[in-house]
């Protein structure tokens, strides 16, 4: 049995990565997880300059999930390149850098800066619901999504994954738009915009008022969207949203994802990804799959 997958020309040792923003740059998880056993590490969104993020409270628990409005706080690309890339390079895993921006120029600046860095793939977040100009404008309009993809592709030396928002009417249309723009892969879903109200204090729970819902509660929505996107495009799909155990990851693969990302579940158990890698392997063995690609999209 072989767990290797090839995503847009990049070989991962297994189909499991972590969802951006839930794993830092890996350093905080080093004590809990053997990073060498991940197919890839996807880093927290990074912009051209440092971002302070939103006021607190930034997170709330919801039934079977959570909401966040961290607001893409990040140290900026310079610190990221000096500190986080060398850290991750010590491990035998793929590095996917998640990029955020407020304008097309912001994205392109980061992508250009990364062109000469030793990283394997770029994930462009055009879907953050928590900052006004956090890319969501690009992520909710097919034309704008296609344009930003084209712009980023001009500067990118690494394969580009476009990260899609679920807060749209047609995920298939968005996936097609970024494919037309030259995306090498798509990833989805980002968080679903929600709101939670404190009925005692009679106000919003999050300082940002709204936040992105993630975790097991959103998993069926994510599976449906991954299925629709995988049927709409030829490029590989990286599936995420509520994966908390191997079975959830396998559902995504059967729905058409070529790889999966684990996000919120890392907060409940920092070592959950190791169980998921092992669980996918056990399922393949039990079901007689020789490679991961044999199971991808099998449900038709």
């Amino acid at each position: 049995m072989n767990m290797k997958v090839n995503i847009a020309g990049i070989e991962w040792k297994n189909p499991v990565t972590v969802a951006s923003g839930t794993f830092g740059s890996g350093a905080e998880f080093e004590e809990f997880v053997d990073l060498n056993r991940l197919g890839a590490v996807t880093t927290k969104g990074v912009a051209n300059v440092p971002w302070e993020g939103n006021p607190t409270p930034r997170v709330a628990e919801t039934y079977g999930g959570m909401m966040n409005a961290v607001g893409l706080q990040n140290p900026g690309i310079d610190v990221f390149c000096e500190r986080d890339i060398p850290f991750l390079r010590r491990y035998d895993t793929r590095i996917i850098v998640n990029v955020c921006g407020r304008s097309a120029e912001d994205y392109c600046e980061v992508v250009e800066r990364l062109a000469d860095e030793d990283v394997d793939m770029l994930e462009i977040n055009i879907s953050c619901p928590n900052v006004k100009e956090g890319g969501i404008a690009f992520g909710q309009n097919p034309k704008a999504a296609e344009e930003i993809t084209k712009a980023v592709k001009k500067y990118a030396r690494q394969p580009v994954i476009m990260k899609l928002s679920p807060n749209v009417t047609s995920i298939a249309e968005m996936a097609k738009a970024v494919e037309a723009g030259g995306a090498d892969a798509v990833s989805l879903i980002n968080t679903i915009t929600g709101m939670k109200i404190d009925i005692r204090r009679k106000t919003f729970v999050l300082a940002n008022r709204t936040g992105g819902v993630s975790g097991p509660a959103i998993h069926p929505i994510a599976v449906r969207m991954v299925y629709e996107a995988a049927h709409a495009v030829k490029v590989p799909v990286i599936g995420m949203g509520g994966i908390a155990k191997a079975e959830d990851a396998i559902e995504m693969l059967l729905a058409g994802a070529s790889a999966v990302s684990v996000g919120t579940a890392n907060f409940h158990d920092p070592a959950v990804t190791m169980e998921i890698v092992d669980g996918i392997g056990a399922y393949m063995k039990e079901q007689g799959f020789g490679t991961v690609s044999e199971m991808v999209g099998i449900i038709g």
Partner: peptide, 26 residues
């Protein structure tokens, strides 16, 4: 503060500081 990871990865639990912090760079 409200936490999500408790181990320094998610940036949920920050407080405002006078000076720029060495880790967050803000």
């Amino acid at each position: 503060e409200r936490m999500a990871c408790g181990i320094g990865a998610c940036l949920a639990c920050v407080c405002r500081t006078k000076e720029k912090d060495h880790h967050t760079n803000v």
